[in-house]
Write a protein that binds this DNA or RNA. Structure first.
Length: 1128
RNA sequence: GGGCCUGUAGCUCAGGUGGUUAGAGCGCUACACUGAUAAUGUAGAGGUCCGUGGUUCGAGUCCACGCAGGCCCA
């Protein structure tokens, strides 16, 4: 019976399916976790995917990385639990449902109840779960899908509430403002997603103003700032310059009032404001009304020089007056000289940048108090100026005689959106225009013009949006900035730059985390407030909520609990129906916001275990994670929220090692998209190539943090080159092992040190390989690991070991030499199966099963699966550096001889007399002699002559070791180099004997040491020579009569072997050879080597005849020969 | 606009701390092998190391400024 299954054809996808079934039937994954019970844990956190969309090829990448290290750590003896999870809340789910139902956000709560809507979301969110599970299985990603955490689960949400309350209790949760797109026409905020709808950005012509801000304490000096939204000018409270930019003070005249004045703007922006034709006109020559306005640069200063400059507000409205440092010049890093004046007008309420900059620099903004004492901007939610401003504008209109198309009241100044009929009137003046005219009249405008730009519009009302302060709940992450930065430095990031650069910079420029989302399907903010906002309550658990409800019912605020008769669901609308009682007995309503879904996923270390309500010990044993991996796009997503929550709440990191992988692009480097049709379907690829080649390709092609240009041909190449070669090697082993009835048995194996040298060599290389793989995987570097395994398998094992050892497998009966060969090859294959198993789990398993099946039948006690084995550490005693060096020399020398043969057109079948190898040391000579036989047979040469100093023909040359000498002599290196390269054989002999030579550099005498030079051998005159990396080989190209004969004999053997094969003969079949007489020369050659020919071709007889009509005519390159081969 | 990544042979990628012939695989060309055979081996050709400046005795490598592609954030 065959102990090792042989395969003609291998179907890799089939291997995947069979092994998957094997794992399932034998519960290998479960066992790989259970069998490590009590061992040290290796904690992995699964970043939850959303099953709302179908999985793509990039998910194969991400999940392969996760899987590789979990499997590796298992082999290394750790217990690796992998709890799966699903991300179930958020905007994508809601949009999907809106699309499915053909509704918009407005309809929710109207044509469909929130309850029904959320039910729909709950159903939709797992829509593609089956596809996900299918992919997870098929790519061999081992993760526990039976007991995953699900973010919409009431227990999960309860933990989120607990964490939110913890933040609230630490005073880290507050209500504030953020500047967001707002549609005054629709009366609602817009998400960035809504703003990205096609058609939202439109080219519109707006009135733009370059306003003049009068500098305090200087005569007629003005700072120029440009805006496309003049209505924000009354809200101006600061001007920003760029620190490093150059600014000029220019003496000129106002083009509207013709007043002489000095203006300040960026030097690079002068071309936008001054006509070069006016450059030569003197200031004195100017007459009011002249088209060309002369100008003169007075002085150039840096932005920093303007810092702190105070100016007068454009609209001196008393109720809007502000204390210092309002109305001063500040700096901001985003100021450029691309347009405008290089000086930016800041209105705290109406620009996100403005708001952030002014908050950071503690500059107050223009706001008024509402009836509750809250700050509100001077444009109301309908998009109109508040009456205070309206009054001012009306007074100014009267003063300057400005008339619109109708009588305006104090409450009629819309800043952006107006009833449409208004614009048709020729006398129509927008608020922007009115402001422009006022400023022109008051010598406060330097330039007013129509400006066409792209501006966002509300997709529902078609009206322009405003950037407007919206109330939001924030987590005060900025309070923990230092700790976040410090803790981050203890995390091992792969690649490092993502941790220091992308993530590190993000932490350095931290802003408070805006938690609020005004949507329906998500974790509700557990905050209740009294209507006047004076009392606030944060609920941290279900029991707290229930107690609150009971209390509220007893006080008559609620009739009954929304949860009466059913399970508690913390989603909307139920929580919205809860009205609580405040300590002072007022009604409290929930703040309607949901929280950012990133909070959901960032809280998974706690929420997945329902901490602290359950599983406290499990949580503690699995926190922080040893390892996580996701795409680099998660830097500000999951990586950030995980980090932030753990630092703020537990003063700890939440992951120790992280791989941030890059994107998977198409083969041309373009982003994959379903719309463009260049997306690769993972299922199709799996079906064609199976999981292993795909996984191997993705990790071996490039480091995972570089973007991967996914090319199917690359997968095919990996399959052919690596898996194909490995498979061939196994098949070779199986073929002969079965013929010889060999079964591997550790107990009976010949000790490694008693095996032939070739065996000891490949085993030595194997130990080095194990060490290399270990080192790579320990450092979360999978790519080098795959590459060294591939190199070992293809170049060392298959192309060298198997080729050289081939004869040992087929020659004769079982003997110790043969046994050693089997054992060696078996051990190499088995070790490879273990080393490769994290990356190619299916094929590795298959190989392992094929290798061990026979032994297991014989009753040997072997692990059921390669994934249940323990890592076989390298055996240091088996590593033989000298042997590895010798073998490397053999490989290099063979390669050089092949190269020479090629050059001389001497085929390998033609034996040659000798090669010459110059050796510079006894050691080197010994190393080559060690493998001399091997080289000779490999390249079909009779002898090697070593040329050393005693031979008299060795010519040495010397050159400086730049790396060593450069450090020592630096600038004098050129001189030193010249001296050394000028040396001949006498100097070389001296330095070789004395170890040094004194030379003079300038006036100094210095010693050049032997080790500071590199001595190599030169070409050998009259010989065909090849040199590579310090190794030189010369070939004796003389073909003597005897050699020629042997060449002919070898050629004949080759032709006869071909004939045997063509005839379909078996390996053991014997033959008769009949040859037609040819020339004297050929006959002599064949007779001389007849014994050799017969042995090689298994011929019992070799006869010559005169005529051979039924023979085959052979082309022997230089002549022809008729031969007849007959089976005996 | 900002931060970060990438750019080396036709393609995919290696090239610690700067050191004098810049490598591998695939592809291509040629040859060899024919008892691993729908397999395999060997050799050869192929380079503006994205560009421009700079530092240095010496730069693919360090610095500056650009260019191209990508990601994230505005």
């Amino acid at each position: 019976m065959k102990k090792y299954q042989e395969f003609k054809q291998v179907q890799y996808p089939e291997i995947g399916e069979n092994i998957l079934a094997f794992w399932k039937a034998n519960q290998i994954f479960e066992k790989s976790v259970e069998s490590r019970e009590g061992s040290q844990t290796f904690t992995f956190y699964e970043g939850p995917p959303s099953a709302n969309g179908t999985p793509g090829i990039h998910h194969v990448m991400a999940r392969t990385i996760k899987d590789v290290f979990c499997r590796y750590k298992t082999l290394r003896g750790f217990q690796v639990k992998r709890k799966g999870g699903w991300d179930t809340h958020g905007l994508p789910v809601e949009l999907q449902v809106e699309k499915d139902l053909g509704i918009t956000k407005d309809d929710i709560g109207k044509s469909i109840s929130v309850e029904e809507y959320n039910q729909k979301c709950r159903e939709t969110v797992m829509r593609y779960k089956n596809e996900w599970d299918d992919l997870t299985e098929k790519i061999g990603y081992w993760v526990d899908l039976d007991d995953p955490y699900i973010t919409f689960d009431a227990k999960y949400v309860e933990t989120l509430w607990y964490l939110l309350k913890k933040l609230y209790d630490k005073d880290l949760l507050y209500k504030g403002y953020t500047i967001q797109p707002y549609s005054p026409a629709a009366g609602t905020g817009l998400s960035s997603h809504e703003l990205n709808q096609p058609g939202c950005y439109r080219d519109v012509k707006d009135t733009s103003i370059t306003a003049q801000f009068k500098v305090k304490g200087e005569v007629d000096t003005y700072i120029l700032a440009w805006t496309t939204t003049p209505w924000t000018l009354p809200s101006n409270s600061a001007l920003a310059v760029g620190e490093k930019l150059d600014y000029v003070k220019v003496k000129t005249f106002n083009p509207y009032t013709f007043e002489p004045e000095t203006v300040i703007l960026a030097r690079e922006r002068m071309a936008g404001y001054f006509n070069p034709k006016a450059a030569d006109i003197s200031l004195e020559a100017y007459n009011p009304g002249d088209k060309l306005i002369p100008y003169k640069v007075l002085v150039t200063v840096k932005g920093t020089d303007l810092l702190g400059l105070a100016y007068e507000p454009l609209f001196p409205i008393e109720t809007l007056a502000l204390p210092h440092p309002a109305f001063t010049v500040i700096t901001a890093d985003y100021v450029t000289t691309e347009d405008g004046t290089g000086i930016v007008h800041l209105a705290k309420a109406f620009g996100a940048d403005d708001f952030r900059t002014l908050v950071q620099q503690n500059v107050p903004g223009i706001f008024v108090k509402d009836e509750l004492g809250n700050d509100i901007p001077i444009v109301d939610k309908k998009g109109k100026f508040i009456p205070v401003v309206g009054e001012y504008l009306l007074a100014k209109m009267k003063e300057h005689g400005i008339y619109g198309h109708k009588e305006l009241g104090v409450d009629d100044f819309y800043v952006k959106n107006y009833p449409k009929d208004d614009e048709a009137n020729p006398d129509y003046k927008s608020t922007d225009v009115i402001i422009s005219i006022i400023l022109k009249n008051e010598n406060k405008a330097f330039k007013v013009e129509k400006y066409e730009h792209s501006y966002p519009h509300c997709w529902r009302t078609d009206m322009p949006i405003l950037y407007y302060p919206m109330e939001s709940w924030f987590i005060k992450t900025t309070a923990y900035k230092d700790k976040l930065v410090a803790h981050n430095k203890t995390i091992n990031w792969k690649p490092e730059a993502t941790g220091t650069g992308r993530f590190g910079n993000w932490l350095e420029n931290l802003v408070d985390w805006n938690l609020s989302r005004s949507r329906f399907w998500g974790t509700p903010l557990p905050i209740w407030r009294t209507e006047d906002g004076s009392e606030t309550l944060c609920i941290g658990s279900i029991s707290e909520l229930e107690a609150g409800i009971a209390d509220a019912i007893s006080k008559g605020f609620m009739e009954k609990s929304p949860y009466e008769g059913k399970e508690v669901d913390l989603h909307r609308p139920y929580v919205d129906d809860v009205v609580l009682a405040s300590p002072s007995g007022q009604r409290m309503f929930r703040e309607t916001d949901l929280i950012d879904v990133w909070f959901d996923s960032g809280a998974m270390p706690y929420a997945q275990w329902h901490y602290p309500f359950e599983n406290q010990e499990i949580f503690e044993a699995n926190y922080p994670a040893d390892f996580i991996a996701e795409g680099v796009d998660q830097t500000r997503g999951w990586f950030f929220t995980l980090h932030t929550l753990s630092v703020m709440l537990f003063d700890s990191i939440s992951f120790k090692n992280v791989i941030a992988n890059g994107l998977v692009l198409d083969k041309n480097g373009n982003k994959m998209s379903k719309r463009l049709g260049n997306a690769v379907d993972p299922f199709k690829t799996l079906k064609e190539y199976g999981p292993d080649a795909l996984r191997w390709y993705m990790l071996s092609n490039a480091n995972p943090w570089d973007n991967l240009k996914f090319n199917e041909e690359g997968v095919a190449e990996v399959q052919r080159r690596f898996f194909g070669t490995l498979q061939n090697t196994y098949n070779f082993f199986a073929l002969y092992a079965n013929l010889d009835h060999f079964t591997y048995d550790t107990e009976r194996a010949i000790p490694v040190n008693e095996r032939p040298e070739l065996d000891r060599w490949i085993i030595s290389k194997l130990q080095s390989l194990i060490q290399d793989v270990e080192k790579s995987l320990d450092h979360y570097d999978a790519t080098p690991a795959t590459r060294v395994i591939m190199n070992y398998t293809v170049d060392q094992l298959s192309n060298w070991y198997v080729r050289l050892a081939r004869k040992r497998f087929w020659r004769g009966d079982m003997n110790p030499d043969k046994q050693a060969a089997y054992e060696t090859l078996y051990e190499c294959l088995q070790t490879i199966s273990q080393l490769m198993s994290p990356v190619a789990p299916f094929y590795a398993e298959w190989l392992y099963q094929n290798l061990t099946a026979g032994a297991r039948e014989e009753g040997q006690d072997l692990a059921t699966s390669v994934h249940l084995t323990n890592w076989q550490a390298a055996n240091q005693d088996w590593i033989q550096d000298d042997l590895e060096t010798s073998m490397k020399l053999a490989q290099d020398i063979s390669s050089l001889v092949h190269s020479l043969r090629k050059k001389e057109r001497l085929k390998v079948r033609q034996p040659l007399q000798k090669i010459l190898i110059p050796v510079l040391s006894e050691k080197r000579k010994a190393q080559i002699q060690h493998v001399e036989e091997l080289i000779l047979s490999e390249v079909n040469i009779k002898a090697i002559d070593y040329i050393d100093d005693t031979s008299g023909i060795l010519v040495k040359s010397i050159k400086p070791n730049f790396a060593l000498l450069g450090k020592k002599y630096g600038p004098q290196m050129k001189l030193v180099s010249q001296k050394i390269q000028g040396w001949g054989k006498d100097e070389i002999a001296v330095i070789e004997q004395e170890g040094k030579i004194q030379i003079s550099i300038g006036s100094n005498q210095v010693d050049i040491l032997l080790e500071e030079t590199l001595i190599s051998s030169q070409d050998i005159p009259g010989w065909s020579v090849a040199t590579e990396s310090g190794l030189t080989v010369a070939l004796d190209v003389t073909v003597t009569e005897v050699l020629k004969q042997e060449g002919i004999a070898r050629d004949l053997v080759n032709r006869i072997q071909n004939l045997r094969k063509d005839m379909g003969l078996d390996v053991q079949d014997k033959i008769h050879i009949t040859l037609a007489n040819q020339s004297e020369e050929i006959d002599t050659a064949i007779r001389a080597f007849s014994e050799y020919i017969q042995t090689e071709t298994q011929a019992l007889e070799l006869t010559f005849v005169r005529e051979l009509p039924e023979g085959t005519l052979l082309d022997m390159d230089e002549f022809e020969l008729t031969v007849l081969v007959e089976k005996v």
